[in-house]
Design a protein around this nucleic acid. Structure first.
Length: 575
DNA sequence: GCCGTTTTCGGCCCGACTGTTTTCAGTCG
């Protein structure tokens, strides 16, 4: 079994948990957690770096000791340090740490005083009322543990950013109506543009916090109040979505917005920089020996540590601070930079509106060009096009193109990549088109080697312009299939074809790391709506956010090109 | 255990809320 970065990160996190239960030096514990974060944020596989003999101590938060542990895990599949800890502390303790309300101290007490060594034992003790009798515990803590155990069954769930927007917007509007409220912004991972969010962090600028909180508690959608103070209140909406609302004075809004936007790793790095300059940075401002310097505006925080403004989408502690220091931050793409869309469907296959309505919707959205890209025959379920129907659609598109002004309709197809890497329609038919999008819609479970070879072979077909939704993931439903993305990106560069960032909210692949990889290799990314309905062109905005998370500039994106330039680039893929 | 414009030792981000405490520890973000 190949070892992935996530396996290593989990091992480090588990060591941190067990060490903390064992009352080890808290900074040693933190070192493991920092390393886990660093490994997760790394764009490349550690196993590959080890194979290439690279120096892992170059990576942030990895020193000689942890580099050796990574190497050991990659080579043997085990980390002895973790195995050793497991001989002294049951493996069942680590899941206990994941329950809200339980940390190392309490887990240690439960284990040492009551012999609780896992979730099952915890439930038995809580049911029997034994926990409330422990020093430092009480009835409320015991009740909270029982609740946490019940919630644990439903497991952690993150929701699509798009779904979160539907909850966030009315709540923000509600909070704006509270007396004395100056500003309301959704911060956290939502503001950083993560494709899924676990909760909403809403920041409010107002003088009277308690007044805002009273207004919040009157919101119709609130299911439960988890905690309530005058600067911070946490509630669960009826939908189950957790919302943290924080109120700060207007003069602290910038510092608070920076702090609550995160990411955690980014904040820690910024505060460290501040510390080196003798500054204390918190959500209330920037301080030098208790004298407040600034904090009105988010840029104050960056200025204080000698950096230019860093866009929220970049704040993942994945090189943005170093890039800012060297003035190498990308000038990120904006939604207005897109001139067209290269992937959409109509009622000819699985779309919900006919060709005319879809094209008019694209024009209304402000696009200069749009490509019609139906599924091909292999997808029987959606009545995919065979050669005859495709040729008929080409005629239909040309007729409509004559008739409609203000937008150019390109002729394309989303052709299936068959199991052996062949395309689902012959070259003679595809060559009538302006572009060919290839996509995997079957055999998702091939081993990585085969899946990668299959896709590389498809990219070598004479007519192949863009690889659609390159990992096939459906967030919350289906994992990405196993592919070596670096090889695919490299091949796209050599083949002079393109990779898609599918902007459907549950797809959004390429993801941020893959976008950065494409940019490194100089492969242009197509941000496509994959629209099936007129309103789906709005997906493009979500795609742009993901592209920004992937450090893409307008020049890195295929469909920011003018039509003439786009046609030139596409023609090369159809030779 | 990591790290370095305080550089091989001595630091390590920082504040709010809860519960159980009678002045604060534990947890969380």
């Amino acid at each position: 079994m190949p070892i992935h970065n996530e396996d290593i990160a989990r091992a480090f996190d588990e060591i941190a948990d067990l060490l903390e239960i064992d009352e080890a030096n808290p900074f040693r514990v933190r070192a493991y957690r920092n390393a886990a974060r660093s490994v997760r944020e790394l764009g490349r596989e550690l196993a590959d770096m080890v194979a290439a003999g690279e120096d892992l101590t170059e990576l942030p938060a990895i020193g000689d000791d942890l580099a050796a542990k990574i190497e050991q895990m990659v080579k043997t599949g085990h980390m002895q340090a973790l195995d050793k800890l497991h001989r002294r502390l049951p493996a069942g303790l680590e899941p206990l740490m994941q329950l809200p309300g339980l940390g190392a101290k309490r887990v240690a007490a439960l284990y040492r005083k009551l012999g609780i060594d896992g979730l099952a034992a915890l439930r038995r003790a809580a049911d029997a009322g034994k926990i409330r009798l422990l020093a430092g515990f009480g009835e409320k803590t015991e009740a909270r543990i029982l609740e946490a155990l019940a919630a644990h069954r439903e497991s952690e769930h993150r929701i699509l950013r798009r779904t979160a927007t539907a909850y966030a917007e009315p709540l923000v509007a509600w909070l704006r109506r509270a007396d004395g409220v100056r500003e309301v912004v959704v911060a956290g991972s939502y503001r950083r543009g993560r494709e899924t969010v676990g909760d909403l962090d809403i920041l409010v600028a107002a003088a009277d916090g308690e007044r805002v909180m009273q207004h919040l508690l009157a919101y119709d959608e609130i299911g439960e109040v988890l905690s309530h103070g005058h600067t911070r209140t946490t509630v669960l909406l009826r939908s189950g979505l957790q919302v943290d609302v924080r109120v700060v004075p207007r003069k602290s809004f910038g510092a608070a917005l920076h702090y609550f936007t995160g990411s955690k790793g980014h904040n820690i790095a910024i505060r460290r920089l501040g510390q080196q300059r003798g500054l204390k940075i918190n959500e209330y401002g920037i301080f030098k020996s208790d004298r407040r310097l600034d904090g009105n505006d988010e840029t104050d925080v960056f200025k204080a540590v000698g950096l230019p403004f860093i866009e929220p989408e970049l704040r993942e502690a994945s090189g943005e601070i170093e890039a800012a220091r060297r003035h190498r931050l990308p000038h990120l793409i904006e939604a207005d930079d897109l001139r067209g869309d290269l992937h959409m469907h109509t009622t000819a296959t699985d779309g919900h509106a006919d060709l005319r309505r879809m094209v008019l919707a694209a024009r209304d959205y402000g696009l200069e060009y749009v490509a019609v890209t139906e599924h091909s025959q292999h997808l029987h379920m959606v009545h995919g096009l065979d050669a005859k129907r495709l040729l008929a659609q080409i005629d239909e598109i040309e007729e409509l193109g004559e008739e409609i002004d203000g937008i150019t309709i390109l002729k394309g197809i989303e052709v299936d990549i068959l199991e052996n890497g062949d395309l689902d329609l012959p070259r003679e038919v595809l060559s009538h088109l302006d572009l060919v999008i290839g996509a995997v819609h079957s055999h998702f479970d091939l081993p990585q080697k085969h899946q990668t070879a299959r896709i590389l072979r498809a990219m070598d077909a004479p007519c192949f312009s863009i690889l659609a939704h390159p990992t096939g993931r459906l967030l919350g439903e289906r994992e990405a299939y196993a592919v070596d993305m670096e090889r695919i990106v490299e091949h796209a560069r050599d083949r002079e074809c393109f990779l898609e960032l599918d902007a459907q909210p549950q797809r959004l692949d390429l993801d941020d790391r893959h976008c950065r990889l494409a940019r490194e290799y100089g492969v242009l990314v197509a941000i496509d709506s994959d629209a099936h309905r007129p309103e789906d062109f709005a997906n493009l905005a979500d795609g742009v956010i993901q592209a920004r998370r992937g450090w893409l500039q307008a020049e890195d994106v295929l469909n920011t090109r003018r039509l003439s330039e786009l046609r030139r680039l596409l023609r090369r893929t159809m030779a």
